[in-house]
């Protein structure tokens, strides 16, 4: 990725394991500033874990994650909370606060981190909700929303403070085709208009390819390919082709590691 000089996140030799299983091993990833970077890969390859490592919610076994020069795993508790003000994260589950209305959820980051007057908070919240198409749902409680709507509210909350870095964990899952199209456009527009950097974790290949400037594909605890969408489409490596074209047979196994199928079936007899 030599053509990109301006890096917002520089991950070097990152290793993280759960028990005996390596989720990622010595990986290097560089996230360019002001671009949409996608991290793709089969389920269970640690994409969400990677976002949590960047957010400082998990500590790696080794390696560094530099965000504008701050090494996240080595920050103290207080500094970490300060750095997180620069980030927005859209959780897979939405993670809305269930005791607050939609409006209060989106207003929450504004209220805790800014001293803005109430009418300005109101305007910003309504603008963010309008962007995700849910201004009319402002007074609803999260329990009254569908999963997809909840995710859109969570997106409005993640961008409420216009953070320098927004991390999207599976933003397209569970969205209907209309919302999906709107979200794809929204992420693209937000990125251009506000100039922030985005990391999208997804396995929706078509949507992700349409908005990503740069893509990393991870599997087996490492980066198996990276490049622009065009470069990856032309990549001949079997693993990459299997993933990009959604083929069941190939070097990336569909099955979680297990003993021989026939042997296990016969064992019970």
């Amino acid at each position: 990725m030599d053509f990109i000089d301006d890096i917002i996140i520089d991950i070097k030799q990152l290793t993280f394991s759960r028990g005996d299983r390596y989720i990622c091993k010595n990986i290097d990833i560089r996230i360019p500033r002001g671009k949409v970077t996608a991290i793709m890969g089969p389920s269970g390859t640690g994409k969400t874990t990677l976002l949590k490592l960047i957010g400082g919610q998990l500590k790696p076994d080794a390696g560094s994650i530099l965000l504008d020069g701050d090494d996240i795993p080595r920050l103290g508790r207080h500094e970490l909370f300060n750095v997180r003000e620069k980030m927005g994260m859209l959780f897979q589950s939405g993670a809305l606060f269930t005791d607050m209305t939609v409006f209060e959820n989106v207003a929450f980051p504004l209220r805790v981190h800014t001293q803005l007057p109430e009418d300005m908070v109101r305007d910003i919240v309504l603008m963010k909700l309008q962007a995700v198409g849910l201004r009319g749902a402002a007074e609803l409680m999260p329990s009254e929303l569908s999963g997809g709507m909840g995710r859109r509210v969570a997106l409005a909350r993640a961008i409420a403070l216009d953070p320098a870095l927004v991390m999207y964990d599976e933003p397209f899952t569970g969205q209907d085709p209309i919302a999906m199209g709107v979200l794809v456009n929204l992420i693209k527009t937000l990125n251009k208009a506000l100039g922030h950097s985005s990391i999208i974790v997804s396995h929706d290949i078509n949507e992700t390819l349409s908005i990503a400037d740069y893509i990393y594909i991870i599997a087996d605890g490492g980066v198996i390919a990276h490049g622009t969408p065009e470069q990856l489409k032309q990549n001949d490596a079997e693993q990459v082709r299997q993933f990009m074209q959604g083929l069941p047979d190939g070097p990336v196994p569909f099955h979680f590691p297990a003993s021989d199928y026939a042997t296990e079936l016969m064992e019970g007899r």
């Binding site: 980030m87 993670a95 606060f97 805790v112 909350r157």
Partner: peptide
């Protein structure tokens, strides 16, 4: 976790 990521 959501609260942590908002910086609270």
């Amino acid at each position: 976790s959501g609260m942590e990521m908002i910086g609270v």
